[in-house]
Amino acid sequence: MMTVEHLNFSYRCGRQILHDVSFEARSGECLAILGNNGAGKSTLLKCFSHILKPQSGSVRVDGAELLTMSHGEMARNVAFVAQNPPASHLTVYDMVLLGRKPYMKWGATAEDYRLVDGMLSALGLEDMAVRPMDRLSGGEQQKIMLARALVQQPRVLLLDEPTSSLDLHNQYEVLSLVQKLCRAQDIAAVMVIHDLNLALRYCDRFLLLHGGRVHAFGDASVVSTENIRDVYRISARVCRVDGIPVVVPVC
């Protein structure tokens, strides 16, 4: 479980991006961070993976303070999947093996190779093991970055707009995979996502950020007509299709 309390972040120039952000993400659940552009969603995610350093506040993973951990210890607790997969010429196998980097001393061990083999097999990526990353489609690359993050054996999986460059089929496939694997491995997934309908389909709880502050936090009921109007400044209706909430903008 990840508990965030009173987190504040501002850039060197003094512009404050995050104001007193507090929430928690439970193990085995998917949490969506929602908000308009510039709300501080990606900044928040980067504060959890030592990419940015918050000025104050606390982030605890299973009780241990994440912000004061060494880089290596942080990487054994938290895995981060960036918005765009890298245009790397590393092979798929090497890229997934990279997820074992936080555990390596002199190099990869037999256990590291065993975990990578298992993950490639579980995600159906075996056929592309020795293909270079930059020869794969966007969907395949994102799945490999997910596999890389999962062999890190994190307690929390952070995903920055994991579906932004994917087609509809791959969007559903990747998010369904995240949901399934997080539940199976009891990992908390925290993802920044723009598509409210995808978030409602695959996430359990929702954090609505507005101007760097928590506007609302809770289950699907927080994605309401009122909150959407406040955060995105548009009118929208929330209906149900086959029991799943769907947001329909009203012009």
């Binding site: 980067k46 993976s49 030592h50 990419i51 060494s70 880089h71 290596g72 210890e73 942080m74 990487a75 054994r76 938290v78 895995a79 981060f80 960036a82 890298p86 790397s88 010429h89 590393l90 090497d94 890229m95 990279l98 997820g99 980097k101 936080p102 390596m104 190099g107 970055m145 890389r148 890190q152 952070l158």
Partner: peptide
């Protein structure tokens, strides 16, 4: 492996403990 991590982008390298 630190250089390999940088191959996957600077932010990913940081998140991998580099």
């Amino acid at each position: 492996w630190n250089y390999n991590a940088l191959e996957s982008g600077e932010q990913t390298a940081v998140s991998l403990g580099v």
